[in-house]
């Protein structure tokens, strides 16, 4: 292969960030740069199946302080598709019991000579804490219920590919909003790109106060089905809940599960997303999850594309690297 094949241009001048910590602070222009770059990478790699070695010689460390299979694999594969080396650091929070702080752990990894850290942690703000304390790029792969920016981006990219646009669409996020980092990243990203966002779920998990940000909050899924272009079915995060926010799974499924019957009352071309891993029969029934409206597997591929784009942009592989928090 000649280098021309890999000539994908420089990092756009409007992109100046070394870190990707959240979508709340990104502009619409920055969001579009990531989405456009991801689209370009997806095409250049035959749907993320081939290599595009533009980060050769770089090392990306995966620091996962919380269990994850999909996101971690996706980041590792994205880095390797771009020719970077990856190291995996699977730390349980038990390192704290050895008296080492989270920042100490990260600084140790940094001292081994890496270029970027992908961090997942159960506590909001940890990615930002690392960005303040390390000299390398920090990419947030999920900080507690705060944000999961690459998940938000891959959801948005999937919508854009399937429906051709974001502006003017009505997108409902269904389920456990309060414990969902995916919800927060989707809310900010979708709003900045001009979508109308509806939050739908039990009132103990969906605060009316989100309306202060221009989001619509509805508790009855059946009342919004007819006007939604996209449903993003969030997983109930049983592991983050100290108290039971609703009486039981059966009642939840009755009120919020996306079933064939509900699908029949939705728009003809409704798109069903789920950030996964899904609880089949709770958020969505199997026939809907595997049906033609579902884009669940597209999301997985787009996850690779988005993460390649984010790694390349933040590392400034072919552009000027400008420091910015």
């Amino acid at each position: 292969m000649s280098t021309e094949v890999w000539d994908i241009g420089a990092v756009p001048a409007a992109w100046t960030r070394r870190h990707l910590l959240d979508l709340e602070s990104l502009s619409a222009e920055e969001l579009n740069i990531i989405l456009d770059t991801a689209t370009q990478f997806k095409e250049a790699t035959a749907g993320c199946t081939q290599k595009l070695p533009i980060l050769t010689g770089r090392t990306v460390a995966n620091l996962f302080f919380e269990n994850s299979t999909r996101t971690r694999t996706s980041f590792a594969l994205s880095a390797r598709r771009l020719g970077a080396d990856t190291i995996d650091f699977a730390a349980s929070t038990s390192s704290l019991s050895k008296g080492e702080t989270f920042i100490d752990t990260a600084k140790n990894i940094e001292a081994m000579g890496i270029d970027a850290v992908v961090v997942r942690h159960r506590t909001p703000g940890t990615a930002q804490l690392l960005a303040q304390n390390l000299d390398v790029s920090v990419i947030n792969a999920g900080d507690g219920p705060h944000e999961h920016p690459t998940q938000g981006l891959l959801d948005i990219l999937t919508i854009r590919q399937r429906l051709g646009r974001i502006a003017g669409l009505t997108v409902a996020l269904v389920g456990d909003i309060s414990h969902s980092r995916t919800a927060r990243s989707n809310i900010w990203g979708l709003q900045k790109l001009g979508a109308h966002v509806i939050l739908c779920g039990p009132s103990t998990l969906v605060s009316k106060r989100w309306e202060e940000f221009g989001v619509e909050v509805v508790y009855d899924l059946d009342k919004i089905l007819h006007r939604c272009d996209v449903l993003n079915l969030l997983r109930i995060q049983f592991e983050r809940q100290s108290t039971r926010p609703f009486p039981g799974i059966r009642e939840y499924a009755l009120l919020y599960a996306m079933t064939r019957e509900r699908l029949e009352r939705a728009k003809d071309n409704i798109l069903i997303l789920a950030p996964g891993p899904i609880n089949r029969g709770v958020e969505v029934t199997a026939d809907v999850a595997d049906g033609s409206h579902s884009a669940i597997l597209d999301q997985v591929t787009n996850g690779l594309a988005v993460r390649m784009a984010v790694l390349w942009l933040t590392l400034g592989a072919q552009g000027e690297l400008t420091a910015q928090g």
Binding site: P124, G144, P145, R184, R209
Partner: peptide, 17 residues
Amino acid sequence: TQGGVMHEGLVSMVLGL
């Protein structure tokens, strides 16, 4: 307040804390 780290309000909602 169990498990809480900050005031419950708009900011905690946005930060997921």
